[in-house]
Amino acid sequence: MSADGPMPGVPETGSDAETYDAMVDVEATDPRDELAKTTYRTDLGVKMAEDARKVSNGELSSEAYWTKYDAEAAAEFGDAYRETPNPAVDCAEGTIGDETAESLGCSVGTMASIAEGLEESDRKGETDDEDDTRWGMVIDLQKCIGCESCTVACKAENRTPPGVSYNVVLEREEGEFPNVTRTNVPRPCMQCENPPCVQVCPVSATYKMDNGVVNIDYDRCIGCRYCMVACPYDARYFDFGENYDGEFTEEGAVTSPEYGMDRGPREDGESPVGNVRKCNFCHHRLERGEEPACVETCVGDARYMGNLEDTDSEVNELASSSRAFQLKEKEGTDPNVYYLK
């Protein structure tokens, strides 16, 4: 049975052979008879049909076929021909080159352009509606090699001080020699759907933005650190105001516009010193169309970033696969960072 047969067949069950026969229309009609019923030139029709079979057998290229018959068919069938969709061209089966199509005066719609058109309209739909983006990250633990490039990329991107590292990679070892396995678990902020850190903040300095990222308003935060003890992932860090002064010339001169706020050079006593800080999914990079620094650089190709709300997104697909899980699922925090087993 050809895998590409023209019609689906009924599963063979043996005992039902008769019924099966009854269902199949074995009558074959003579093409000549069919065409004879029409008012058009039979010989042309038959010739075209025979050559069409050659095309399908690969003996004749479809370019050659249409070059051969286009004019004749137009003459024979007139306007009807021009207006009828030409399957070789309009069906976009890719059986005919663009040049030939051009010369035939019909347009070519390729799969890619259709897909692109669909994508574009999808994309537009999203940007119109801000609420449609919920950023999520997927980390494939089979691929994560525990290199900590994400950790350092984050330091360089967000220019966090000593003791503040938005991302860490935890290493877990199990088993006994020689059957030892290690798992590397990167830990950014989970941007929980139900974030305990937000729940406890006395001044709403930390809250969930529409795009799913939990932000910290450095100008409002009083530095009480309640959110730190509340976070089940230890994802929050206090900025004690330390610096790399002795080792890193001018290190405070560059800072990151976290949450879209450019605060200028780092200065003693100025926020975010005295505030709590954490991974912000590189909100500023996302807004300018770049993936987070840790995702961009991930050396194991283990990190994915995307819109969890968009069913076409890679993260959506991965997060809903059976390999996906969240850290401490039973806490009810519902992280927007998913891991793949």
Partner: peptide, 19 residues
Amino acid sequence: VDVSKWSLSGGRICLKGQA
């Protein structure tokens, strides 16, 4: 970024390179 993970405005470098 929202659908295909990588925007390719930059490639990968390791932690030492980042530093």
